[in-house]
């Protein structure tokens, strides 16, 4: 397969998973250019890390818009990144045994981090802590 100085060559027609992966990489990449850059501009340029604390996140997640936004960003970014790691493993890990180890670790990390990330976004309830602070 001849690369043309861009990304991987597009897998042949009927490539099944690899073809979907190839398209997903490019589509999620385009989505992430807007979503990830906007996230960086809001969190690191308009605000800086000095302003961000528990109260900041609580205020932000009061809005369903930001919860949905962060959830979409979590899934797009994780799946795009993990797909990159998958292709990298494919390129560098050649021994059959090590490939099984690397792919298993990657799957485990993917599921674990998507679950804890989604849990944080969905279950967060700032009022649960306000009552504690008010009571003490």
């Amino acid at each position: 397969m001849l690369s043309r100085g861009g990304g991987r060559a597009r897998p042949a027609r009927g490539g099944g998973f690899e073809l979907y992966s190839w398209y997903f990489f490019r589509i999620s990449g385009l989505v992430l250019i807007f979503m990830a850059i906007f996230h960086v501009v809001v969190m690191h340029v308009v605000n800086t890390v000095d302003e961000i604390d528990f109260a900041f996140v609580a205020d932000r997640w009061n809005s369903p818009f930001w919860r949905v936004y962060d959830m979409l960003l979590l899934f797009f970014a994780m799946l795009h990144g993990v797909n990159g790691a998958r292709v990298s493993i494919d390129d560098y890990v050649h021994r059959a045994g090590w490939r099984i180890v690397a792919y298993s670790a990657l799957w485990l990390i993917t599921v674990l981090f998507l679950v804890i990330g989604a849990m944080a976004i969905v279950t967060f309830d700032p009022n649960a802590f306000d009552t504690v602070t008010a009571g003490s």
């Binding site: 996140v57 994780m78 990159g84 944080a120």
Partner: peptide, 27 residues
Amino acid sequence: TGLGVLLFLLIHIADIYVINYGPEAFD
């Protein structure tokens, strides 16, 4: 750069997870 950003993403998901342990722990 892709693998670097992925590494940060994992750290970032972990630190945001701590928010459910309350303001003291998170701050």
